[in-house]
């Protein structure tokens, strides 16, 4: 019983949670959202550019995109954040002063861009070549056909994978604490960790975990919902009353004999 009560007090101490809650709500949560949303936007834009470069016929676009993706997907997120956040710190100090957020967002965006680029690329490449041909046959240029027809379809197909990447981004935003945050810059994890360090009780850290779950679990279910909707949207239902249009176009227009002769395939 002693062990159980010790464990309970370590992780579920109401007083510790109540003490950390206001700061998590007013400081940690907004900062986590700023980091995650900014990096998601920048990472998605970068990912789209990488995806388009990755399918380009020009190797001078394709190869750099490949190398970039291999590097930023292959490095541990913590290493990238430290390399950029610390390595570029002197430059960051000149531009933004003592604020590690821009470099943290940059690092998170560069990482997310590599993953999202691969997600978008696979989606775009999954769109049938006939769609591009159909658009080009209407008189659209390659760029217009990609922008209006191919990319919207490709992105739609990989929405679940893209949302998964956003979930990973929310969690990875906790790594920005490596860059040294002042009190008002701390995100959820750092606040929880600080309370845990000063009180010796892990309840505030558990509370931070609960905040992450509140952010990520609905997104996980959103992924499933989107996936389900897209699958249902692809179902084909044929109108049983379809007469092939004869009633309206007038069967008299048709030749009296329409023998079907298919050649050998």
């Amino acid at each position: 019983m002693d062990t159980l009560s010790t464990l309970w007090e370590t992780f579920f101490d109401g007083d510790s949670m109540r003490e950390a809650l206001p700061e998590m709500l007013t400081v940690g949560l907004p900062n986590t959202l700023i980091l995650a949303i900014s990096a998601a936007l920048l990472g998605s834009v970068l990912g789209m550019l990488l995806a388009i470069a990755g399918i380009s016929r020009t190797r001078w676009l394709r190869w750099p995109a490949r190398v970039y993706t291999d590097i930023f997907r292959g490095l541990p997120a913590a290493a990238t954040i430290l390399l950029i956040g610390v390595g570029l710190a002197p430059l960051g100090m000149e531009v933004w002063g003592h604020n590690p957020y821009p470099l943290g967002i940059l690092a998170l965006s560069l990482i997310a861009g590599a993953y999202i680029g691969e997600i978008f690329r696979s989606g775009i490449q999954s769109v049938e070549a006939a769609q591009l041909e159909g658009a080009r046959a209407l008189g659209f240029s390659w760029g217009e056909a990609m922008r209006l027809v191919i990319i919207p379809q490709g992105v739609r197909r990989v929405l679940p994978a893209w949302v998964n990447q956003l979930i990973a981004l929310i969690k990875d935003s906790s790594l920005v604490y490596f860059l040294g945050l002042v009190a008002s810059q701390r995100e959820l994890f750092r606040i929880g960790q600080d309370y845990a360090a000063t009180t010796g009780n892990e309840s505030a850290l558990l509370l931070a975990g609960l905040f992450y779950l509140v952010l990520t679990v609905p997104l996980t279910h959103a992924v499933n919902w989107i996936d389900r909707r897209l699958r249902q949207g692809r179902a084909v239902t044929v109108d049983p009353d379809d007469d092939g249009g004869l009633a309206l176009v007038g069967e008299t227009a048709l030749p009296p004999q329409t023998a079907t002769g298919k050649d050998q395939r």
Binding site: G244, G245, L246, V249, E251, A253, L254, P255, T260, K262
Partner: peptide, 17 residues
């Protein structure tokens, strides 16, 4: 060519017209 036989006539009718 990709249509079920019962749907071919309607399309051919449009083309003939």
């Amino acid at each position: 060519s990709a249509l079920d036989p019962e749907l071919v006539k309607g399309v051919l009718a449009v083309m003939a017209d």
